[in-house]
Design a binder for these strands. Structure first.
Lengths: 338, 338
DNA sequence: TTGAAAGCGTTACCAC
DNA sequence: GTGGTAACGCTTTCAA
């Protein structure tokens, strides 16, 4: 077993590097005979082209960067599945970076990425992100960028999101119809647009049902799971009139379950709960959880598809390429009417 | 905002590329004055070294490859968290590849990786993997390789695993003590060592409790979720005497729940269930699931740590570096005695 | 303390 | 149809 480079392979074949290079890439200007001879020997000698030499020469990395807040989360891991699949189809490699929802880490990653390590970037913003200046740099550098799920509107690029406003409106209305009157809203971030849209859907539903908006019912649930649990328990104790919870992310729905369990509140009798979630096992919870399910896998695929169209056609990613996919409300026992 | 390379930066400074290169890398042979001047201007001009030029020159990629069967799975996503953290600490980038449990895809990925794209590889084998010849090539190429969780013993390298035999023994014994007598075992793979160890722990516990081993109670649950569900339902219908299930992976435990739900078998009254799982929400299931929880995050961290020690010290990864971490059995309602 | 030049492995232009 | 050569951006001898 040996490992050779192009030059050695050429030597072995009694050909020049240029010819071998062309033969390996199925160039039309090479005779079928030599092409086959070259490829056979290349296989025998286990020739593998050095990817960095090619990248250096052609300014093409065949790699995309994926920047995510977390991965231990059904939404993001499904999205990665979609992304990876499209990347593999296109012969691309996937670099993954986790920000753990820290704006600082996101900045650091963006800086790496401006170094030219990738041909394009897919990103879901960290909840800790305030400014998007670091992403502007990416774009100035000419790197296509597609944001998904946790997006910013102040960036002149494509986004792939779900109909957050509408589905939040529906979720809230669902609670109202099930009989809830005092509905808490658990946010994941006050700064990301996703947080705002979900909040506004909630507010609009309340308004349409003539229920006054009460800012004291909106909780920012960022931080660790333990933090969230504590905050939710506090809220439920201070506001015993709460009879419904709308959790804007899966994690907070589950923390709500735990809070209710620990405080002895019965779901759905005392409190009804609905949450965004991509758990396959929502139906196996006690009680089964009413969810708004996002098409996470499709989101990943579409975001990747938009990115690759830009990369391959050498055209910028435009806001006009943005997509909005539909989420689905699945009613289960946690919002059952009594 | 401009983007410059080393030569342009040198031109701007009125210095040679060599000097600037040295100054950027804090070489001792550069005067403090010039070093600071260089670094200041570099920051101003937004200089980012081309990573491929460096890799080509130094034969170092500052990148590791992580090859996984799936990522939409609590165990693997927690492991990635651990891996990514250690990689970031060491200033390394992480390329991720999903095999979807296909041996063919794993081979293809291994081939990419032998191309010199990474400095080392972390891997959990696909259940579809039969031979490990493609991994031998990685090692012959001189690439450090650390296997975790789904490992092969026939490869002369380090592995990070949990005490699968012991915890399977405990899980089975737990079911026996809870009163189960006819216990099905749901395997994920008959070929991976993890499958064998878990099977043998199960068999040993049966043996020690003088219960004859019955091969008809062992089910191979590979394939899609729908496949698994169908197989499990079949088994339960053909063998109505089954009063216990030991699922060797999380997915199969959940499919068992669904099977029982659909067949109207009560857990734990009719059938008791224990499964390997890293779900945070095992306690929220109906009924709450008795689990063997693996230290997934720690496994990822340790595997990465072993890999980086090898990369940084330029020493091979040896079987002697292997680690076995402990899993924890958490008894919950799904195995409660009546 | 600094500079010139070779070379990492590949591709693409230009000859032939 | 094939070969020579320059160039991608960087680091590292070797010289000065």
């Amino acid at each position: 077993m040996s490992f050779v480079n192009l030059k050695q392979l050429a030597g072995e074949l009694g050909l020049s590097s240029s010819t071998v290079s062309r033969a390996m890439r199925d160039s039309y200007e090479i005779s079928t005979a030599t092409r086959e001879r070259v490829q056979t020997v290349a296989r025998q000698l286990n020739y593998q082209p050095n990817p960095f030499a090619g990248s250096l020469r052609n300014n093409v990395t065949k790699t995309i960067g994926v920047v995510l807040p977390q991965v231990d989360n059904h939404f993001f891991s499904l999205a990665i599945n979609g992304i990876e699949e499209v990347a593999q189809q296109n012969g691309y490699h996937v670099l993954i970076y986790l920000t753990h929802d820290s704006g600082e880490q996101e900045k650091a990653v963006a800086k790496y990425l401006t170094g030219g390590r990738v041909d394009g970037v897919l990103m879901a913003l960290a909840s800790g992100t305030r400014s998007v200046a670091h992403l502007e740099k990416l774009r100035q550098r000419g790197l296509p960028l597609v944001l998904f799920d946790r997006v910013s509107d102040s960036l002149n690029t494509a986004t792939v999101t779900t109909d957050d406003y509408t589905s939040s409106y529906q979720a809230t209305e669902h609670l109202l119809r099930a009989g809830s009157r005092t509905i808490a809203h658990l946010q994941v971030s006050g700064t990301l647009s996703i947080g705002n849209k979900r909040l506004h859907g909630y507010m609009a539903a309340l308004h349409d049902h003539r229920i006054p908006y009460d800012a004291g019912l909106v909780l920012n649930g960022s931080g660790s799971n333990a933090d969230s649990l504590r905050k939710i328990k506090n809220l439920l104790q201070q506001r015993p009139d709460i009879d419904g919870i709308f959790a804007s992310v899966e994690r907070l729905a589950l923390s709500s379950y735990q809070a209710c369990q620990q405080l002895g509140r019965a779901i759905p009798q005392d409190i009804k709960i609905v949450g965004f979630s991509n758990m396959e096992t929502a139906s196996l919870l006690a009680p089964s959880l009413t969810t708004i399910t996002q098409p996470a896998y499709a989101i990943g695929k579409e975001a990747a598809r938009i990115l690759f169209q830009s990369i391959i056609k050498h055209k910028p990613v435009l806001p006009a390429h943005s997509m909005v996919l539909k989420s689905e409300l699945v009613a289960r026992a946690s919002t059952a009417t009594l």
